[in-house]
Design a protein around this nucleic acid. Structure first.
Length: 859
RNA sequence: GCCGAAGUGGCGGAAUUGGUAGACGCGCUGGAUUCAAAAUCCAGUUCCUUCUGGGAGUGCGGGUUCGAUUCCCGCCUUCGGUACCA
């Protein structure tokens, strides 16, 4: 044996570990469980660059560390394999996306294997595998067969709703729904099956609706709100249009409150929780009904400031508001129609870039102010959004800047209702003031005035307290090929779920991946894509939309627990043992997408009694991005991609792992640094030299370790344990370096010290530690070794070099026994020659002594 | 605009509970070894300075404290989220 030959060492152990199946984990164990999960990747054609494995390395270190500490650690990996790029490629080349996906996965696997991860690959999942998406479809059907009971704040089986309908109709039921009609139990019993199914669809947790969606013509599909950034598609940056389309949606809005409250008990970063809170967007206010003058209509508005109602001088409704036509007077008809036409023509982007441009039109109608009786004009303006609240607001120009801008532009009155407001300059949105010009609210503080007004509104029956959420239901249809088929067929225009025994509905073959000529999604190209339920000779059309990318990733963590189960999505035993994820690692960019849907599905499955927890991941760590050396994003386009395979070829996987960790804190963004890699590589060579003589022969000693050697070791045990516990893997690397430097200085290659050190380092650098471990004659793999116990007696010192400060500035050190009392310390320090120099003969004003820490002298 | 996170040497970063600022590594400088190089080793490396010493210093300005990178107030910059949410 000679120099540190990482290539052959790593190849040897890669093979050996695979043969020994050292990373295989059982569902039955006496040990406590621990679940460490990485966000699984989409296998793109470009392969991995050095930024991708950062989080995987960190989670691998943590998994190995936990395993060494006696846990049964579930640490799996798989692929989020459905997605747009494979399909775009298929459209261009005609290759089946399954084929390119397969190839990309093989490439990913090769790269991941080189790095030496401890994944239990027997548990791999792929969302595009029919054996997997069978259960995605099955969960979809469970969601379809559920409704949300607002009284219990839980999803329940649709059967309980049906029996309520049979007995008492829908007037009393408190459900999340889209039904704007009432019926009695008798009515229900008299309805046709079709009508009943249509009604149920308004209550189901997944439902079909004709709703305004974000249509992306370039991608040929609709997109969810979280897939749009700055008014264009996140993928590709294409323009978005608002369109009414028939879509499947999921009623995530029913879970707004629980998704919000659930954040409290999660150990996620504050910034990530804040992003989710903002996205959910809870606001507490009041719904107020304004009687439209000379009309039967009552205009319902939402406001968070009911106290400012006396400052309302006009109403504004969205261009899409349902009353637009009814409220438009004859002489305003032309103007209104022109305005609405213009508003419709604007894309999302135009509207956003047009914020400063104030537009609007008067309808010709008025409402009556419920307290003053004054007539207030109703305007239409696109600064009011149809999708939020009721799509109508009472405009209080002195209290809301947007209303102020609008009033200022159209010359409408701006009366102040808060003391001290300067309405000539702008609105006063401060909630700390006192009410004026407001009848019975005069002199009250805003908070009290809101309470009083709510009471008045409710007693006059013209309004009530209301809570609104910004988060909308999630569109669940994609007009694409490469996704899970929706397991629904249509009979008489009504959707029915496919029977469980007929799942999965497999993706049919098509001859082209584009929409059909009559505008159907790509699945419309399939021949005979129909379904015949048992006992029915007819065949019915199957839903042609596929599921969105987030479907498979919303529950994958459960499948890893029991990946081969063909009878259940996961067995009760497995999910009871493994529970939810203890540590989840991934990027913060999934804050409003994956991480919300992931929580949502978990809550639904929990409500339905299918899993015993209602949050998927207790702790979440967001790893930062590695930028290219030039500070830019690492991308093929800029030609600055660093491939981990190349680094491994030149320095080995241990060096790559160590270097990625040494770059800085895991959650921080940081540029790749090629120079620094030689430093960690040198360190590994130094470790190697510690155990090899000048001729390259392996050498070590069986002698007992002395005090200094044990001190160096136990200092490292303590520090590395602490650091690993708090995911500070960069500082554990520097601790290894310090330990090896000290042992090199001490010329210590004693087994008693080296073996525990190897175990400490093993999570970071599995290959070299396993090699040395086996050279030391160990038969068991280091992968299975126990974490060394820390013994603080090795660190106990009898004296300490006290830093002595004058006015907080460290001047010199003085070695004193640690058992010395405060007074003696003070006396000894003040009597020292060193101190005399700084005291210059004067007595100190004050002396602070913190035993074992510091001495500070004030002069 | 609003919300969140962060600003420390030439560079990546460390300082975990208010207690020696700059650990560890890179880079750089000088030296040893070598015919030479690679590799390795040793010493130095925050800045200023009148250099056996002194002064300044953790984005900027204040404050609390014997003592502040750490706590408080006000600003600046960078990054991330969000974008008329009533």
């Amino acid at each position: 044996m000679n120099a540190y030959d990482f290539s052959s060492i790593e190849a040897k152990w890669r093979k050996q570990w695979r043969e020994d199946q050292v990373y295989r984990i059982e569902n039955n164990s006496e040990k406590p469980k621990f679940y460490v999960l990485d966000m699984f990747p989409y296998p793109s054609g470009a392969g991995l660059h050095v930024g991708h494995p950062l989080g995987y390395i960190a989670s691998d270190i943590y998994s190995r560390y936990k395993r060494a500490n006696g846990y049964n650690v579930l640490h799996p990996m798989g692929y989020d394999a459905f997605g747009l790029p494979a399909e775009q490629y298929a459209i261009q080349t005609g290759q089946h996306p399954a084929k390119t996906t397969e190839e990309n996965i093989a490439r990913y696997r090769e790269q991941l294997d080189l790095i030496g991860f401890s994944y239990d690959w027997s548990r791999e999942v792929r969302t595009s595998d029919p054996k997997y998406y069978k259960w995605t479809q099955w969960i979809f059907i469970q969601v379809f067969n559920s409704w949300f009971n607002k009284a219990t704040q839980k999803a329940e089986s649709i059967d309980t709703l049906i029996s309520i309908f049979e007995n008492e109709g829908n007037t009393e039921v408190n459900a999340a729904n889209d039904a704007d009609y009432n019926f009695s139990g008798g009515d229900w019993m008299g309805y046709s099956e079709k009508r009943q199914q249509e009604i149920l669809l308004d209550y189901r947790l997944t439902y079909i609706s004709n709703s305004l969606v974000n249509w992306c013509p370039a991608l040929g599909t609709v997109l969810a709100n979280d897939e749009i950034k700055n008014g264009v598609s996140e993928r590709g940056g294409h323009p978005i249009e608002q369109q009414k389309m028939r879509q499947w949606s999921m009623r995530i809005s029913a879970y707004s409150e629980r998704l919000l409250q659930g954040l409290e008990k999660l150990d996620w970063t504050d910034s990530l929780k804040e992003i989710q809170r903002n996205w959910i967007g809870k606001s507490i206010g009041a719904a107020v009904h304004f009687q439209v003058a000379d009309s039967d209509h009552r205009l319902e508005i939402f406001t968070t400031r009911p106290d400012t109602i006396f400052g309302a001088t006009f109403m504004v409704i969205a261009p899409e508001h349902e009353f637009v036509e009814d409220l438009t007077s004859n002489d305003q008809k032309e103007a209104v129609e022109g305005y609405i036409l213009k508003a419709k023509a604007k894309t999302e982007r135009d509207r956003m870039s047009d914020v400063k441009n104030i537009t609007g039109v008067f309808t010709g109608s008025y409402v009556e102010h419920p307290f003053s009786g004054e007539k207030l004009p109703i305007w239409i303006a696109d600064y009011v959004l149809a999708g939020y609240g009721t799509g109508a607001v009472m405009a209080v120009p002195s209290g809301d800047q947007r209303d102020w801008d609008f009033a200022n532009h159209f010359d409408l009155p701006i009366p102040a209702v808060i003391e001290g407001s300067d309405v000539s300059e702008g609105a006063n949105e401060d909630k700390g003031g006192v009410l004026i010009n407001s009848d019975f609210l005069n002199g009250m503080k805003v908070k009290d005035a809101i309470k009083k007004m709510l009471f008045e509104l409710e007693s006059k029956e013209i309004g009530e307290k209301q809570i609104n959420y910004r988060m909308r239901d999630a569109v669940f249809s994609r007009q694409r090929y490469w996704g899970e088929p929706v397991p629904m067929y249509f009979k008489d225009g009504v959707p029915y779920p496919v029977a469980e025994k007929d799942l999965p509905i497999e993706l049919p073959e098509v001859d082209k991946y584009l929409p059909t000529e009559d505008g159907q999604p790509p699945l419309g190209n399939a021949k005979d894509f129909t379904y015949s339920p048992e006992g029915d000779n007819n065949s019915y059309p199957i839903e042609l939309n596929t599921m969105p990318g987030w479907a498979g990733s919303s529950w994958y963590f459960m499948r890893y627990m029991d990946p081969q189960n063909s009878d259940e999505f996961v067995s009760k035993d497995a999910v009871d043992y493994w529970q939810n994820v203890d540590v989840y690692l991934g990027g913060a960019e999934h804050a409003t997408g994956h991480l919300l849907y992931f929580r949502f599905w978990t809550k639904v499955l929990n409500d339905l009694g299918l899993v015993p927890f209602d949050e998927p991941a207790k702790k979440l760590i967001n790893q930062g991005m590695i930028q290219a050396e030039d500070g830019q994003k690492m991308s093929k386009r800029y030609g600055n991609v660093v491939n981990p395979d190349d680094i491994i070829g030149e320095f080995g996987a241990d060096t790559l792992r160590l270097h990625e960790m040494f770059l800085g804190p895991i959650e921080q963004h940081k540029p790749w640094n090629t120079k620094g890699i030689e430093g960690v590589h040198r360190f590994l060579k130094k470790l190697w030299r510690l155990l090899h003589d000048n001729d390259g022969n392996f050498t070590f000693s069986e002698e007992k370790a002395n005090k200094d050697e044990l001190k160096a070791l136990h200092k490292a045990i303590k520090k590395v344990s602490d650091d690993n516990e708090r995911f500070s893997f960069n500082t554990s690397v520097s601790t290894f370096m310090i330990a090896v430097n000290e042992l090199s200085d001490l010329k210590c290659n004693k087994r008693e010290v080296i073996e525990p050190l190897l175990v400490l380092m093993h999570p970071h650098t599995p290959y070299i530690t396993e090699e040395v471990w086996s050279l030391l004659g160990n038969k068991e793999r280091i992968v299975l070794a126990e974490w060394p116990a820390f013994d603080k007696s090795h660190l106990v010192e009898s004296s300490y070099a006290y830093p002595v400060s004058f006015n907080g500035k460290m001047r010199f050190k003085i070695e004193l026994p640690l058992d010395l009392g405060k007074e003696e310390i003070e006396k000894t320090v003040l009597a020292s020659d060193e101190a005399a120099k700084y005291l210059e003969g004067t007595a100190p004003k004050k002396v602070i002594v913190v035993p074992g820490k510091i001495v500070n002298i004030v002069v």
